[in-house]
Write a protein that binds this DNA or RNA. Structure first.
Lengths: 140, 140
DNA sequence: ATGCCTGCAAAGAATTTGCAGCTGT
DNA sequence: ACAGCTGCAAATTCTTTGCAGGCAT
């Protein structure tokens, strides 16, 4: 709790119950939720929470680089508390999103810079397919 | 021209002037345009072309795998006639989008499958940063 | 002849904005 | 005290849909 407040404060953002709740929800889930999902999760415990606040908070967190935004082939953005370099495996069947650590990142970025002169600052690497579970169950 | 008609027909889509025009526009540009950009490019030569037709055509082409849709950190989808495996370098400064061929793809997919059991079918690999030109000019 | 396609306008969905009041620092 | 935050509602933006007429096969 204290740690979350510090994180938020150190980005020059005011610490409010809503912001703590949103940060905490993202911190405690692996599901990479959308704004709507977060709102639905939180509104029971925070009856006055509005969807606009969720959007505004996510935008503020994103600008402060406390979180990252994922653009999957989906109608809404998803959010990830993990801003370290990693990629995402997205199951087209059950819609689960898995983190995948990618050790060769710096090599790839360097290769791109050497070959093209393009300086890589941030990546979004999405792998779409079927997770083990869905393959096992023969789902489509 | 003939080749485009064949491509469209072989996907069991009817060949219309609008579809040829949209396919041709995508084929002849490197700019990975949005629906809106395509519409603006085409409406002078096709005065009755509607934005709805552009969207419907792009959706049909996408389903037929004639094109691919890009989800950049942007308000609109971009479209790419190249459906072969490749990644995209996106300049956060001038907004240019460059294709980048990525020879190590099959290795990476195989690695993911071996390590996680996730079966990769399609990827979207985006590298955000600054292009050589913008670096040279000191742009932000 | 038939079913698919077009183009208009209206609807829909996700996100943003304006603003008045409130809260954190 | 003041700047920044919240929450409501309205606005905006992008995309989709319904439908009537038209065109490709």
């Amino acid at each position: 709790m204290e740690a979350i407040s510090k994180k938020i404060k150190s980005s020059n953002l005011k610490v409010t119950p809503q912001r703590i709740a949103i940060y905490k929800a993202l911190y405690e889930t692996k599901s990479h939720p959308t704004a709507e999902m977060l709102y639905n999760d939180l509104k029971d415990n925070y009856p006055t929470m509005s969807i606009a606040t969720v959007y505004k908070t996510l935008t503020a967190f994103k600008k402060a680089k406390l979180i990252q935004e994922l653009n999957l082939n989906d109608s809404s953005f998803h959010y990830d508390i993990n801003t370290d370099f990693h990629s995402h495996l997205i199951c087209t069947c059950c819609k689960s999103i898995f983190d995948y650590d990618f050790s060769v990142f710096s090599e790839i970025s360097e290769k791109i810079e050497n070959e093209t002169g393009f300086c890589v600052e941030h990546t979004q690497l999405y792998f779409y397919g079927k997770c083990g579970e869905c393959q096992k169950q023969g789902n489509n």
